[in-house]
Nucleic acid binder design. Structure first.
Lengths: 113, 113
DNA sequence: GCAATACTGAAGTTTTCACTTGACTATTTG
DNA sequence: CAAATAGTCAAGTGAAAACTTCAGTATTGC
């Protein structure tokens, strides 16, 4: 379990870097309703198709998105595998925190600022 | 369910922006083992305590981190609530994707690049 | 009380990265 | 085949943001 997390760190880093941009998150939200082409995406985003392509490359490189080119049209859709990787990491973060809290009995409560 | 997701969008955006930085992720990983002070964190990160403080503010503003000042030492520790918010969002992304895939019967498979 | 420690705040620098432009390739349609 | 459409590539620009420095405020220990 510690091993699987270590092996996934590089992946998770790239996923979180990818999701750390609001335009890429808008792309994810658009694609969560239906598959769309590059220019379909560019229109509501209000940016050039070139910019969209650059974002797609990043989302694809960390398995948050898949695409296939039919003729001259590239259709894009979400890829579950990246989200699964992320889901594992988040739940591991949370559970390791909970384990620690159980051991210590909740010493830290609030901040002061 | 759609409502709860919509209400959480602002939160999730700030969480993902926060996690979209490698130094802040290193802070999270350090704190997943034990609570640490600001200067405890600065040492392994190789940056100034000022920079750490700036990151802490961001992590705290989206409930990924809590801290409490005892005397002149601020002790930091992970906050589960931010991770829970994120976990919900990720799983909603994944399940909406799966629902769509079920309806369409898996038309898109691979990319070509 | 004085020095050292732990952190915070404001302001400046540097770097990163999102986006554009312009040129190019490949596909479709008249 | 020519024009239009869909996308890609390389290079350049601009703005956001990560980090530093320096000055300042509490707290602790001698």
């Amino acid at each position: 379990m510690a091993t699987s997390m270590a092996l996934r760190v590089g992946k998770v880093d790239r996923i979180l870097d990818a999701l750390g941009d609001s335009t890429r998150r808008r792309i994810i939200r658009l694609l969560s309703t239906r598959p769309m082409s590059v220019s379909d995406l560019a229109k509501p985003l209000g940016i050039t198709v070139t910019a969209v392509t650059q974002h797609l490359r990043i989302l694809q490189s960390c398995a948050l998105l898949t695409s296939r080119k039919n003729g001259r049209v590239r259709m894009c859709s979400l890829d579950a595998s990246g989200f699964e990787t992320l889901e594992h990491w988040v739940s591991e973060c949370r559970t390791s925190w909970e384990r620690r809290l159980d051991r210590l009995g909740g010493i830290l409560d609030e901040d002061d600022t």
